[in-house]
Deep mutational scan, measured.
Amino acid sequence: SIEEEIKKAEEAKEKGKTFIHGDFVATTEELLDELLKRLRKKL
Rank of each mutant, 00 (worst) to 15 (best):
E4L: 10
A12C: 15
V25I: 13
L35K: 00
E14G: 10
E10F: 08
H21Y: 15
E30V: 07
L35T: 01
K13M: 07
K13R: 12
V25L: 09
G22Q: 06
G22Y: 11
A26G: 03
H21C: 15
K42C: 15
K15A: 12
E10H: 06
L32Q: 00
E14C: 15
K7Q: 11
E5V: 15
H21T: 07
D33C: 15
L39F: 05
T18F: 12
E4S: 09
E5L: 15
D33R: 13
L39H: 00
F24N: 01
K8E: 04
D33W: 13
F19M: 06
A9R: 04
A9W: 06
E29G: 12
T28L: 12
K37P: 00
F19E: 02
R40A: 01
E34H: 07
K13Q: 05
E34A: 10
K42D: 06
I6P: 01
E11P: 02
L43K: 05
I6G: 03
E34S: 05
G22V: 09
F24P: 01
T18Q: 12
R40Y: 14
F19I: 06
F24H: 04
K17F: 15
G22W: 14
L35P: 00
K13F: 06
T18Y: 12
D33H: 08
A26V: 07
K13P: 01
E4H: 08
A9T: 03
K42W: 15
I2S: 05
E29F: 13
R40P: 00
I6F: 01
F19S: 02
D23A: 11
L31D: 14
A26P: 03
K8V: 02
D33T: 09
E4K: 07
E5M: 15
F24V: 04
D33E: 12
D23N: 13
L43M: 05
S1P: 07
G22A: 06
L35D: 00
E4D: 12
I2W: 08
D33A: 11
T28I: 12
K42A: 13
A26E: 01
E10A: 05
I6W: 02
K42F: 13
E4P: 04
I20E: 06
E34Q: 10
E3P: 05
K37V: 08
E3N: 06
L31G: 04
E5H: 09
K42V: 11
E11V: 07
E11R: 06
D33I: 12
A12F: 03
K15T: 12
A12D: 04
L31Y: 03
A9H: 01
K17C: 15
T27Q: 05
T28G: 07
E5R: 09
G16V: 03
K42M: 15
H21F: 14
S1N: 10
V25F: 12
E4N: 07
K8H: 06
K15L: 13
E30W: 13
L43I: 04
F19A: 04
T18P: 12
R38W: 15
E14Y: 12
E3F: 11
E30Q: 09
T18M: 12
K15E: 06
A26Y: 14
L31R: 01
F24R: 00
T28S: 09
A12W: 03
L31P: 01
R38L: 15
E5G: 06
V25D: 04
T27P: 01
E5I: 15
V25T: 06
I20P: 03
L36A: 01
E30D: 10
K7A: 12
A26Q: 03
K41R: 14
R38E: 06
E10W: 08
S1D: 11
T18K: 09
K17V: 13
K17M: 14
H21D: 03
R38K: 08
E11T: 08
E4F: 07
L31I: 06
K7T: 07
L32N: 00
K7G: 05
H21V: 08
A12P: 01
K7E: 06
E11N: 05
I2L: 13
K42L: 15
H21M: 08
L31F: 05
K13A: 05
F19N: 04
T28E: 03
A12Y: 04
G16W: 12
E5Q: 14
K41I: 10
E4T: 06
A26S: 03
T27R: 06
D33P: 00
D23G: 10
I2R: 04
V25W: 13
L31S: 05
G16Q: 06
L31A: 11
H21A: 06
E34L: 13
F24S: 02
E3V: 11
G16T: 04
K15G: 08
A26R: 02
L32T: 01
L39I: 05
K13N: 02
H21W: 15
F19V: 05
K37L: 14
I20N: 04
K37Y: 06
K15I: 04
L32I: 13
K15D: 04
E30H: 09
D33N: 12
K8P: 01
E34M: 12
L35H: 01
E4Q: 09
E3R: 10
E34G: 04
E10N: 07
V25G: 03
F24G: 03
L32H: 01
K7D: 02
E11D: 11
K15P: 02
R38T: 09
K42Q: 13
G22K: 05
K42Y: 13
L32E: 00
E30C: 14
E10Q: 10
K13G: 03
L43F: 08
R40W: 11
T28Q: 01
L39P: 00
D33S: 08
A26T: 03
K42S: 09
G22H: 07
A12N: 02
K41L: 13
K15V: 03
K17I: 14
A26F: 10
L43H: 04
L32D: 01
G22P: 06
L35I: 10
T18E: 09
R40S: 01
G16P: 00
V25N: 07
L35G: 00
E5A: 15
K8I: 04
E29Q: 13
I2F: 05
G16N: 08
G16K: 12
K41V: 08
E34D: 05
R38M: 15
I6A: 02
L35E: 00
K41T: 08
E14N: 10
T27M: 10
F24A: 01
I6Y: 02
L35C: 13
I6E: 02
K17L: 15
L43C: 12
S1A: 10
S1M: 10
V25K: 06
L36V: 05
K15W: 08
L36E: 00
I20L: 05
K8A: 10
G22E: 09
I2G: 03
E14R: 14
L36K: 00
K37D: 07
D23F: 13
A9P: 02
L32W: 06
K8R: 13
G16H: 11
E11F: 06
K41D: 09
A9C: 15
A12L: 03
D33V: 10
T27Y: 14
R40C: 12
D33Y: 12
E11Y: 10
E30S: 09
E3C: 15
I2A: 04
E4G: 05
K42N: 03
E29T: 14
A12H: 04
K41N: 09
F24D: 02
R40N: 00
E29C: 15
T28M: 12
K37G: 05
S1E: 09
A9E: 01
K17Q: 13
D33M: 10
L31W: 07
L39S: 00
G22T: 05
L39N: 00
D23H: 07
I2K: 03
T28H: 01
K15Q: 13
I2Y: 07
L43Y: 07
E10T: 08
F19Y: 13
G16D: 04
I2E: 01
H21N: 04
K37R: 14
L39Y: 03
T18C: 15
E3W: 14
R40T: 01
K8Y: 04
F19D: 03
E11W: 10
E29K: 14
E3A: 11
A12G: 01
T27S: 14
E3K: 10
F24C: 13
I20K: 07
T27I: 09
L43S: 01
K13D: 03
L39A: 00
E4M: 11
K15C: 15
S1L: 11
K7Y: 06
T18A: 12
D23Y: 12
K37A: 13
T28C: 15
K7S: 06
E3H: 09
A26I: 11
L35R: 01
E5K: 08
R38N: 05
I20S: 06
K7M: 10
V25A: 09
K41H: 10
E30L: 09
A12Q: 02
K41E: 10
K17P: 04
E3Q: 11
K17G: 13
A26C: 11
E14F: 12
L36S: 00
K7L: 09
A26D: 02
G22M: 09
K13W: 09
F19H: 06
E10Y: 07
D33G: 05
E3I: 12
D23S: 12
L43G: 01
R38P: 00
E5D: 11
L31K: 04
E3Y: 11
E14V: 11
I20G: 02
A26L: 08
K37M: 13
K17A: 11
R40L: 08
A9S: 02
K13S: 03
L35Q: 01
